[in-house]
Design a protein around this nucleic acid. Structure first.
Length: 393
DNA sequence: GACACGTGGTT
DNA sequence: TAACCAAGTGT
């Protein structure tokens, strides 16, 4: 009874003043029926996934980090390989950074991998291999925020706590017609409070995972099939025919365009790579040097030939390297990140292998060694475009 | 609290 | 195609 009172009082406190809000109230009986219906469906239809074979916190943790902003189908092969290479938290703590990044190559959001290892070292060195089991304890670890802490605490340690991810936002906003903007950080509190009241106290981990499976099947963002959903009877927005209004989410900004020259300098099978800065996008990655074309433009009417000439001059002035460059690709390579869109025109030139590289922040890498190094997708695109152009000659 | 941070897939 | 989505976190 206490939980029901809390549930209702929560809503009256946070919602009653809001204009136009119509509260959907669930009785304790409804909550119990929802749990039973959801968990029964989960028992019969849950996805079989590599990280669902046991409740080992290491397995749950690695999978949850990989799954951040990443689809299950993408994660599966990375997860399997990662567990082969780094089977325990101790192995991960001791891994060299190069092989760690190689194991993460192509997954994106690479700070996840670095935070993963930082947390592994925290567990091994500071906690003597013992995992924190509570949300607040887990959040002390690098890379673990409110969602992942809730997921690990509930799945690995059976703590009755919410794990609010994109699925939970979508599912519960539709079930309860919650119209708060899920893009706003403060909205998380509302969902956490609601789900902490509804979550199964006996099987919290299964409850959270069931919501995710629901959000990935009958309650997807688009092309959802609510009529087949096991919990459609509990779905108020469906009953009202307004499910397309949920979740409420403000628009994201468009990626900002950047035009670059990608500089391909080589000596036989050796290519000159620049090490990117330690912060910012694609931090620490080896990449062909990029020149922002904006920085080369003096007048709007500058031709591309003039810009290429200025790029040559900059390479000579900054790196003390004499180069003659020619254009490789007619159409720029396009690569879109969350907040940036890159258009890259490749410029090729040759360089003597014994050139003085002391003014250049990088090194030669032989093609034979490419497979040992982690490259970003945009670098892989540059290489593929270059190779294709060379072969067609 | 707004923004940075990767990549692949869908519409 | 531009826009949006996919098991978010750090600053």
């Amino acid at each position: 009874m206490e939980s029901l009172l809390f549930f209702v009082s929560f809503y009256s406190k946070y919602y009653s003043e809001r204009k136009g809000f119509r509260m959907i109230e669930w009785s304790e009986d409804t909550i119990e029926k929802f749990q039973a219906t959801l968990l029964d469906w989960y028992d019969h239809h849950k996805r079989i996934l590599p990280w669902r074979q046991d409740h080992d916190p290491y397995h749950i943790w690695v999978s949850e980090i990989m799954l951040q902003q990443t689809q299950v189908q993408t994660v599966i092969p990375y997860y399997l390989n990662f567990m082969k290479q780094f089977p325990t938290v101790q192995a991960l703590a001791e891994a060299d950074e190069g092989s760690l990044m190689k194991a993460w190559e192509g997954l994106g959001y690479y700070s996840r991998a670095r935070n993963l290892q930082r947390a592994a070292k925290q567990i091994v060195n500071d906690y003597h291999g013992n995992w924190p089991t509570t949300v607040s304890g887990l959040k002390e670890l690098s890379g673990i925020g409110p969602y992942t802490a809730g997921a690990i605490a509930s799945i690995a340690f059976n703590q009755p706590v919410a794990a609010i991810d994109g699925n939970a936002f979508r599912v519960f906003s539709r079930l309860l017609e919650i119209d708060d903007d899920v893009a706003k950080p403060q909205t998380r509190k509302i969902f956490e409070t609601v789900v902490n009241q509804i979550i199964s106290k006996d099987r919290p981990g299964d409850f959270n995972q069931a919501i995710m499976d629901l959000g990935a099947s009958y309650m997807t963002a688009t092309n959802y099939d609510t009529n087949q959903s096991p919990v459609k009877a509990f779905n108020q927005s469906y009953r009202d025919g307004i499910e397309d209004q949920f979740p409420v989410k403000t628009k994201k900004k468009r990626p900002v365009p950047h035009d670059y020259f990608g500089i391909v300098l080589h000596s036989d099978n050796n290519y000159l790579f620049e090490k990117r800065p330690t912060t910012g996008i694609l931090a620490n990655f080896w990449m062909f040097p990029l020149f922002d074309q904006q920085g080369l433009i003096k007048d709007k009417s500058d031709s591309e030939g003039i810009l290429i000439n200025r790029a040559e001059n900059e390479i000579h002035d900054e790196y003390q390297l004499p180069v003659h460059l020619h254009k490789v690709n007619a159409k720029p390579i396009t690569h879109t990140f969350t907040h940036q869109q890159w258009h890259i025109t490749l410029l090729e030139g040759t360089l003597s292998f014994d050139s003085d590289l002391s003014y250049f922040p990088g090194k030669w890498i032989e093609t034979a060694n490419f497979h040992t190094i982690a490259f970003s997708k945009v670098q892989q695109k540059m290489w593929a475009t270059y190779e294709k152009a060379v072969k067609s000659k």
